[in-house]
Write a protein that binds this DNA or RNA. Structure first.
Lengths: 111, 111
DNA sequence: AAATTATATTGCAATATTACGATTAAAATA
DNA sequence: TATTTTAATCGTAATATTGCAATATAATTT
């Protein structure tokens, strides 16, 4: 108990849920939006930007990286982060596909 | 500790994170996809469709309903569920906006 | 080499989530 | 009204997540 029963679902369902879950936290949304706002990659000022302790931010960055939502390259003492299109585009495609299908069969709505 | 520090983030960041989080579980993705597959609303067979106990499914449905990802109307003894465009479209807009912005400034990528 | 700077890791406390058995609630039917 | 059917709620165990202080690591600068 307490553990998600992943074996019960398809590989794709688990994959997409994992990526979505990684963005399901305001701090990680804030990180994504900060990376968007800045016109380039940022090196080493995420910690100053967010109201969380450094280890906490490091943890959130790790999760975003693990799911290909951001990517980082070592740049001397600091790390240069930017958005990874890979993850974002997967989400974009997933939701626009669902939205499109919804529009096509609007007729059948009974609720 | 243990609690997300929501006060630290904007209202919109918290709202979008809450909706996204609600879909960040394979069972809830499976529910969404089942509702998509069926061409109309479904009344009372979600429990037979998913490999989880009835109280667990009820709990997942509650979370999806809370975030406007599905909606349900009482239909006699059972409840008729279908996808709520409200939540889905919010997600669709959010991610396509980010994907668009990303395409526009592809030039600046340094990672 | 010592000090500095930036990030990661460890360990842990507080809280949240997941799952389900047991029970309850509410409507339909016998 | 008693029974059946369907879904919600309660209570609880197992596990996961969040957040941070302390510490470690790794590259840079003095």
């Amino acid at each position: 108990m307490g553990t998600t029963k992943s074996e019960m679902f398809t590989k794709h369902q688990n994959e997409i849920a994992t990526i979505i879950k990684a963005l399901g936290h305001p701090a990680r949304i804030a990180i994504l939006e900060y990376l968007m706002k800045i016109d380039s990659c940022i090196c080493s000022d995420i910690v100053d930007e967010l109201p969380l302790a450094q280890p906490t931010i490091s943890q959130h960055l790790k999760e975003l990286k693990k799911t290909n939502l951001i990517k980082g390259t070592v740049e001397g003492t600091s790390i240069c982060y930017c958005i990874d299109e890979n993850g974002i585009e997967k989400l974009e495609r997933y939701f626009s596909s669902i939205a499109n299908q919804l529009n096509e069969k609007k007729k059948n709505n009974c609720c």
